[in-house]
Deep mutational scan, measured.
Amino acid sequence: SLTLTVRGEEAVRRWYKWAQAHNLEVEVETHGDEYVLHIK
């Protein structure tokens, strides 16, 4: 499992696509303009 902090929706989309390509689940938490992604 992997936890990432990114800024901006574009980065979130990029990681989301990456995770889907690897059959992984993604949980997204929003903290202001930062997003915490939990990839499992």
Rank of each mutant, 00 (worst) to 15 (best):
K40V: 08
R14T: 06
G32A: 05
T5G: 03
E34P: 02
T5L: 11
W15K: 01
E34V: 15
A21R: 08
A19Q: 01
H31G: 04
N23M: 08
V6E: 02
H38L: 09
H38G: 02
W15V: 11
E25N: 09
V12A: 12
L2H: 08
G8I: 03
T30C: 14
E10D: 11
V6P: 02
V26A: 03
G8K: 03
L24H: 04
Y16S: 08
K40N: 08
E27D: 10
Q20T: 11
K17Y: 10
V28F: 07
S1F: 13
Y35H: 05
H31V: 13
A21Q: 13
L37I: 14
A19W: 02
V6R: 01
V26Y: 07
R13L: 12
Q20A: 12
A11T: 08
R14N: 10
L4E: 02
D33E: 10
R7N: 07
D33Y: 06
R13I: 12
I39R: 00
G32R: 04
H31I: 13
G8Y: 04
S1M: 12
R14S: 08
L37T: 00
V26T: 03
E34A: 10
E10M: 07
E25P: 05
L2F: 15
T5R: 14
V26C: 12
Y16D: 03
V26L: 13
D33R: 05
K17I: 12
G32L: 05
K17Q: 14
N23R: 06
L24A: 07
L37D: 00
E9Q: 10
E25K: 11
K17A: 14
Q20V: 12
H38C: 10
L4K: 06
V26F: 14
A19P: 00
K40Y: 14
V12E: 02
H38Y: 11
L24E: 01
R7D: 05
R14K: 12
D33Q: 09
V26R: 00
E27Y: 14
E9L: 14
S1T: 14
Y16G: 04
V28Y: 05
T30M: 14
Y35T: 06
Q20M: 13
A11W: 06
T5M: 10
D33I: 06
R7E: 05
K17R: 11
Q20I: 12
T5V: 15
L37E: 00
A21T: 09
A19E: 00
E27L: 12
E27V: 14
E27C: 15
E9A: 11
T3I: 14
H31A: 09
A21D: 13
K17G: 05
V28P: 01
I39N: 00
E25T: 15
L4W: 03
A11P: 02
R7Q: 12
G8E: 05
A21E: 14
R13D: 11
E29S: 09
L24Y: 14
T30N: 13
R7Y: 13
A11G: 05
R13G: 07
K40F: 14
A11M: 10
E34L: 15
G8L: 04
R7A: 07
L2R: 06
I39K: 00
L24V: 06
E34N: 11
E10G: 07
E9M: 15
A11Q: 09
S1H: 13
T30R: 15
L4V: 15
E9G: 06
G8N: 10
V36K: 07
I39Y: 02
L24K: 04
S1K: 13
E34I: 15
A19K: 00
H38I: 13
V36R: 07
L37G: 00
T30L: 12
G8F: 05
T30E: 13
V28W: 07
G32W: 03
H31Y: 12
A21V: 11
A11L: 10
V28D: 01
V28A: 04
R14G: 06
R13K: 14
H22P: 00
L24N: 01
L37A: 01
T30F: 11
D33H: 07
Y16M: 15
H31L: 11
V6K: 02
E29F: 12
A11H: 06
E34D: 08
W18V: 02
R7L: 10
A19F: 08
W15Y: 05
R14Q: 12
L4I: 15
L37R: 00
Y35M: 05
E10S: 08
E9P: 08
T30I: 15
R13F: 07
T3A: 05
E25H: 13
E9I: 15
V12N: 02
L4G: 02
L4T: 05
T5D: 02
E25M: 12
R14V: 07
G8W: 05
E29C: 11
V28L: 10
V26Q: 01
K40H: 12
V12R: 04
Y16Q: 15
N23Y: 08
Q20R: 11
R14C: 15
K40L: 08
I39G: 00
R13M: 11
A19V: 05
E29Y: 11
A19H: 01
E29W: 10
L2W: 14
E34W: 15
L2V: 09
H31F: 13
L24W: 11
T3V: 12
A21S: 10
A21H: 09
T5W: 06
E27H: 12
Y16K: 15
K17F: 08
A11I: 07
E9Y: 09
H38A: 04
V6N: 01
T30S: 12
V28S: 03
V28M: 10
G8A: 05
G32I: 05
H38F: 08
H38W: 07
H38E: 04
H38S: 07
E29A: 07
V12M: 15
L24R: 05
